[in-house]
Computed example of a mutant assay.
Amino acid sequence: MKELVTVIVPILEPQINPTEEKLLHHALQILSDYQFIFVAGEGADLSVVREHAENIDVVHFPKRYFESRQHFGQLLLMADFYEHFNWCDFLLIHELNSWVVKDELHYWCKQGYDYIKAGPVLADPDKTPGILKRITGLSEEEKRVYGAGYADNGLYLCRIERMTATLKGKKSVAHQYRHNADIPNADSVFWHLEANRFLSHLRKPTDIVRSHFAQFGVQYDNAATSPFALTGISRDNIHEIPYFKNLPETE
C-alpha cells in the first residue's frame, strides 16, 4: 500500500539563512508524523539542516536545479521529479518561505484535489486573467506579471499521478515554460494557467477553499479561522508580519 503523503523540502544554494532555519525547525516539529525528504543539488552542504534533524533522507538532483528558485522551478516542471516519489500518493512541497499553522495535512489530502496552492499577489488585482483570457492565452508580458505574483510562494500539495500525467500530456507546453527564463516562477504559472487550459487535467479548489489552505503572511490578519499554512515569508518581512509578532518566544 502506498504512503499517503511525503513532505519535500528543497535546499537551494547557498546555505540557508536564520529565517529559513526557523521555518525548517517549525516544519519538522508540527509535521513530525510525516516523512520528510530533503532534495538538494549533488554535493550540497547540509550541515545546517542536520543540526535540526540528524538522520535525514536526502534525494540529490543535478546541482544546476538548486542554483536559484528559478532553476528549481524547472525541476518542478519535469515528470521525472514527481515519479521519483511515486511510492506515495501526495507530495507537500514545502519551500523554506512557508509556515504550517496547524497540522491539517491529512485532511487536505482527503479533499479530492490534485493541486492546491495559494494564488498570486498581483500589484493590480484587477488584472487577474478571467476565464476567457485563460483560454485564449496570456501574452509574454502578462505571464511575467502573473509569475512575479508568486514570489516566495513555495508551498503546495499535489497528487503525484495527476501531476505526471499532466506533464506528459502537455509535454511541449511544459518544455516551453521550463526553458523560458523571462517568466519568474514559471512552474506556478504553468500549473495555474496551462494545466487546465482547453481540457481539465487537475482538480483544483475554488479561491475561497484555497484561502483556507494557504495565505500570504503579509495579508493574514489573525482571523478567528486560520489557514493550514502561511507563505510569502522571508527574512525581509518576517518581523513585520503580525502573526509572528504574537508567537511565543519558544517558536
Score class of each variant (00 low, 15 high):
residue 4 L to T: 04
residue 4 L to M: 09
residue 4 L to V: 02
residue 8 I to K: 03
residue 9 V to T: 00
residue 14 P to W: 01
residue 14 P to N: 03
residue 14 P to K: 02
residue 15 Q to T: 07
residue 15 Q to I: 06
residue 18 P to D: 09
residue 18 P to Q: 01
residue 20 E to L: 02
residue 20 E to Q: 09
residue 23 L to S: 05
residue 24 L to G: 04
residue 25 H to K: 10
residue 26 H to V: 09
residue 26 H to M: 14
residue 27 A to C: 14
residue 27 A to Y: 01
residue 28 L to W: 02
residue 29 Q to C: 13
residue 30 I to C: 06
residue 30 I to K: 05
residue 32 S to F: 10
residue 33 D to L: 13
residue 33 D to R: 11
residue 34 Y to D: 08
residue 35 Q to K: 13
residue 40 A to S: 08
residue 40 A to G: 09
residue 41 G to T: 00
residue 45 D to H: 07
residue 45 D to Q: 07
residue 47 S to T: 10
residue 48 V to I: 09
residue 49 V to F: 02
residue 49 V to S: 04
residue 50 R to P: 11
residue 52 H to F: 13
residue 55 N to K: 13
residue 55 N to H: 14
residue 57 D to P: 15
residue 58 V to A: 12
residue 58 V to L: 06
residue 59 V to Q: 08
residue 60 H to V: 13
residue 61 F to Q: 03
residue 61 F to I: 00
residue 63 K to T: 15
residue 69 R to E: 14
residue 70 Q to M: 12
residue 72 F to W: 07
residue 73 G to P: 12
residue 75 L to Y: 04
residue 75 L to A: 07
residue 77 L to I: 05
residue 78 M to P: 14
residue 79 A to V: 05
residue 79 A to C: 12
residue 84 H to G: 13
residue 85 F to Q: 04
residue 88 C to K: 07
residue 89 D to I: 03
residue 90 F to L: 12
residue 90 F to S: 08
residue 90 F to W: 05
residue 90 F to V: 07
residue 91 L to V: 03
residue 93 I to W: 00
residue 94 H to Y: 04
residue 95 E to C: 12
residue 97 N to C: 13
residue 99 W to P: 15
residue 99 W to K: 07
residue 102 K to R: 07
residue 104 E to Q: 12
residue 105 L to Y: 01
residue 108 W to E: 05
residue 113 Y to C: 10
residue 115 Y to N: 09
residue 117 K to S: 07
residue 120 P to M: 08
residue 121 V to Y: 04
residue 121 V to D: 08
residue 122 L to A: 05
residue 122 L to Y: 02
residue 127 K to R: 09
residue 129 P to Q: 05
residue 129 P to M: 08
residue 130 G to A: 13
residue 130 G to Y: 03
residue 133 K to R: 14
residue 133 K to N: 12
residue 135 I to T: 05
residue 136 T to V: 11
residue 141 E to G: 15
residue 141 E to F: 13
residue 144 R to A: 15
residue 147 G to F: 06
residue 153 N to P: 14
residue 153 N to L: 11
residue 155 L to P: 10
residue 155 L to R: 01
residue 162 R to G: 15
residue 167 L to R: 01
residue 169 G to S: 07
residue 172 S to D: 15
residue 173 V to D: 03
residue 175 H to Q: 06
residue 176 Q to C: 13
residue 177 Y to K: 04
residue 177 Y to E: 04
residue 179 H to M: 10
residue 181 A to Q: 10
residue 181 A to V: 10
residue 185 N to T: 02
residue 188 S to I: 02
residue 190 F to A: 06
residue 191 W to R: 00
residue 191 W to A: 05
residue 192 H to Y: 01
residue 192 H to V: 02
residue 194 E to Y: 01
residue 199 L to M: 09
residue 200 S to R: 12
residue 203 R to E: 14
residue 204 K to F: 01
residue 204 K to D: 00
residue 206 T to V: 00
residue 207 D to R: 11
residue 209 V to T: 09
residue 213 F to P: 15
residue 213 F to I: 05
residue 215 Q to H: 10
residue 215 Q to S: 14
residue 218 V to D: 15
residue 221 D to V: 10
residue 222 N to P: 14
residue 222 N to E: 07
residue 225 T to M: 13
residue 228 F to I: 00
residue 230 L to A: 06
residue 234 S to C: 08
residue 234 S to W: 00
residue 235 R to T: 09
residue 237 N to D: 01
residue 237 N to G: 08
residue 237 N to Y: 01
residue 240 E to A: 11
residue 240 E to N: 10
residue 243 Y to M: 04
residue 246 N to A: 12
residue 246 N to Q: 11
residue 247 L to V: 05
residue 248 P to W: 01
